[in-house]
Design a protein around this nucleic acid. Structure first.
Lengths: 101, 101
DNA sequence: AATATATATCGACTTTTTCCGATATTCCTA
DNA sequence: TAGGAATATCGGAAAAAGTCGATATATATT
């Protein structure tokens, strides 16, 4: 985990918002299915984009930033890319701040 | 605590370094005294600046950023301003990431 | 193969951040 | 009260990030 990359990724309102949405997809994405099923892949870019109200390119870029920071994972399935939170990184970050930072 | 302000403050190599130095002042600042005494005020700007190898103005500004984020506190005493970590904010941030983010 | 849909990447422009030198402020001491 | 030392603030140049529209790529459908 690249500390600084993670902090930079978290230094943006929209990206924080996206992470919050992805924490409770069934709450924030009406069309979201399979939230509680193991095969759940996440939320696709289009839905996130609509909710964010920014252009497709911007949201795609933001998701790439979050992914490079390890905060989300991406799964391509058909024409869609599904993003979901990577809770492991959040846990690592929390511990890092509590003890190493 | 302003989330984004904190994350922005942590998105810089030098500032992270300063926080690390302030965690163990007796280790990183040879001239540092009173480390384990209650009246310890912190480390003054000049020492931090020397170690950082950046200009006085830049380091002063960085310390102000850390202070506004609540990550350090400043105490003026005579012509010196002493900075030290505000562990409370680190703890809050760690918890926030663990549960709310 | 042609077209449509979802996403990613590119190029450009604007805003923010980084970092500097110069100057101002504050406080100490002669 | 004048000068010196420590720190803060200001103004600017360069680099990075934010954001867009246009285009490219990948996949699905006909």
């Amino acid at each position: 985990m690249e500390q600084i990359e993670v902090f930079k990724a978290l230094s943006n309102k929209t990206r924080l918002q996206i992470l919050a949405w992805l924490k409770e997809p069934e709450k924030f994405f009406p069309d979201y299915k399979f939230a509680n099923e193991p095969e759940c892949l996440g939320v696709c870019v289009g839905h996130i984009q609509q909710k964010a109200g920014l252009t497709q390119s911007t949201v795609s870029e933001y998701l790439a930033i979050l992914q490079r920071a390890g905060l989300v994972t991406a799964t391509r399935s058909g024409q869609w890319t599904y993003y979901k939170r990577n809770e492991e990184t959040f846990a690592l970050l929390s511990n890092l701040i509590a003890s190493d930072l």
